[in-house]
């Protein structure tokens, strides 16, 4: 295969990575932006989404499309419920103190991981893609399902953006983000907003996990890479800056895809991590962050 088609393949792979990463990182960024907490367990919500996708799709064997839809809705709901429970039982009791919540979410990470290991086991399980066609280019065939991933992620990113900027729910979230106490003085139930934001952030990660699992298989340790990459993207995009997060996801996702195809996935992670370190040396507020007003 000559260079041109090879690059096209690399860019396609990069786009898939970028969209899935954007979804995952947007969840992390939203939680950090509104609640000012660093959720170290975010990758486990991604993993939980993937593992639950396997569980839900095995409920309806032989019907991959139905199983996939069931997995999308079911995993999101289950993970959202887990997140609300974690918020009420753990984070709220710590008063959302930054240091305490980091330690607590590290604990949550291990609890989720070990519960999944106990129940689901140490093996990776594949999930059959809901559709099975190949897009045939003159040089290579490409999985049609990956294009579905791109489309579904784009739709979810759009829906999240619309909710945040155009609806009353989004206005309430943004008001809580900017000034928690004043939000309360205007009748906003800040506790419930926090639960909702934490659930929404976790559900975005879970859906990303569901989307990735027909490509990657479900495994109880699969949450680490998305967590690392999400942190890289959120820091690069400027902490709590949602637009920056999505843009940074594309920078990192595309370069990750291209470098993985031409060289190796490990090199891609090394370069991404180095890149973040360099950016932080030059611009502490991140690539797209605004200086505090």
């Amino acid at each position: 295969m000559s260079f041109g088609p090879h690059l096209l393949l690399a860019l396609l792979e990069g786009t898939v990575t970028a969209f899935v990463l954007a979804l995952t990182a947007l969840g992390l960024s939203l939680v950090f932006g509104v609640m000012r907490i660093v959720n170290v367990a975010h990758g486990e919500f991604f993993m939980l989404g993937a593992v639950l996708a396997w569980a839900f799709s095995s409920l309806v064997p032989g019907m991959p499309a139905l199983g996939f839809l069931l997995a999308l809705v079911g995993s999101a709901l289950v993970v959202g419920t887990v997140a609300i429970a974690a918020d009420r039982l753990i984070l709220r009791r710590l008063n959302y103190a930054p240091e305490a919540t980091i330690v607590a979410t590290i604990g949550l990470l291990y609890i989720i991981q070990q519960v999944v290991l106990t129940v689901y086991g140490p093996n990776a399980h594949p999930v059959v893609p809901p559709i099975n066609f190949r897009v045939v280019f003159p040089w290579f065939g490409y999985s049609g399902y990956k294009l579905v991933v791109i489309g579904a992620s784009a739709a979810l990113l759009g829906a999240t953006w619309y909710t945040l900027t155009r609806t009353r729910l989004g206005l309430i979230m943004r008001a809580t983000q900017f000034d928690r106490e004043t939000a309360q003085s205007f009748g906003i139930p800040v506790d419930r907003v926090y639960s909702a934001v934490f659930a929404l952030g976790a559900m975005l990660a879970a859906v990303a996990g569901v989307l990735i699992v027909p490509i990657q298989q479900a495994h109880y340790l699969m949450g680490l890479d998305p967590l690392l990459l999400s942190f890289i993207v959120v820091i690069l995009g400027g902490l709590g800056n949602l637009r920056g997060t999505v843009m940074a996801a594309f920078v990192i996702g595309l370069s990750d895809g291209v470098i993985s195809v031409f060289f190796s996935a490990t090199l891609a992670k090394i370069i991404a991590t180095l890149f973040v370190a360099l950016v932080l040396v030059v611009r502490r507020e991140g690539l797209f962050g605004e200086k505090a007003r």
Binding site: L171, R174, A175, F186, I188
Partner: peptide, 13 residues
């Protein structure tokens, strides 16, 4: 809510 517009501030009220 200084990052929000005048209208959004009033809407919250």
């Amino acid at each position: 809510f200084s990052e929000l517009t005048v209208e959004e501030n009033l809407t919250l009220g």
